[in-house]
Amino acid sequence: MSDVITTTVIVATIASGIRLATPFLLASLGEAIGQRSGVLNLGVDGVMLLGAFASYYVVLETESIWLGVMTGILTGLLMGLFYAIITVPLRAEQGVSGIGIYLFGLGMSDLLFQKLVGTPLPIDQFSEWHVPLLSDIPVVGEMFFQHTPMVYIAFLLVPIIAFIINRTTFGLSIRAVGESPESADSLGVSVPKVRFATIMAGNALAGLAGAALAIELGIFQQNLTNAMGFIAIALVYFGAWRAPGVMAGSLVFGMVGAIVLQAKTLGLIPRSASDIAAMAPAVITILALIIVANRFRQPAALTKPYVRGD
């Protein structure tokens, strides 16, 4: 065994797990922000798909990766605005309107792709950015500091979002709105404003996740995300609505996936059992949550539209 599992293999597997975790992390962070303010969005996958297509198309036409990334974010913002209008002033049922958004994104991204592009053509991909000094550390440098920029952005967002939610007035408003919109309102916090902000920010992150995926892969095709957005929602529950928890969930899911892939590549898993092995990320994510025993409770006002004075 030990002659197969070399340092190189371990380093490659961990780096691979981090890459696999990145789109989940971006989308989960976005979903977590929305849910902290009491809004569930089941449409993440649709927004990811639209963000992925928009960024893919812009990169294909302009050859500018960063313009593509910006387009992905912008697409997310627009979808966020749409979703916010539906769920805040119009008070639509969040579970089912999210599914509507998902179906819209799934169909629309495919339709636009067929109309505007047709045959899948490759686009420029992110190139790796080696963090000065840190990337030179043996083993560790290769695992953590030789990635594409989107990986760093995703993981840097974890402390930033945690800080905003836990240490700023705005974060306090978000939590208040998610726990008790009535008291937040009585303290002068505008529930609709906060929710518009969190929904749009959350969707922007979903759009960014889509952009990250399309540009990392250098391609788009029908249903590119393959239901990643739903896994991202699941990981919010894993992470108990907290940024570090969401990161842990994304890493567990990504890392187990990477280990299984690596083991298959090395022939450590017989081919007859390859489907069984592919279950591992899902099963281990559930088991991990049982063992960690999640004692956190969901935001009290989650999925509840706020009606002033009712």
Binding site: V96, I101, Q114
Partner: peptide, 21 residues
């Protein structure tokens, strides 16, 4: 393309639930 209908289904869902309340 059936993609159009998927997108349209999504819109119908969104429009209907938006007016439900």
């Amino acid at each position: 393309p059936s993609a159009l209908i998927i997108a349209l289904n999504g819109l119908i869902v969104v429009f209907v639930v938006s007016t439900e309340w």
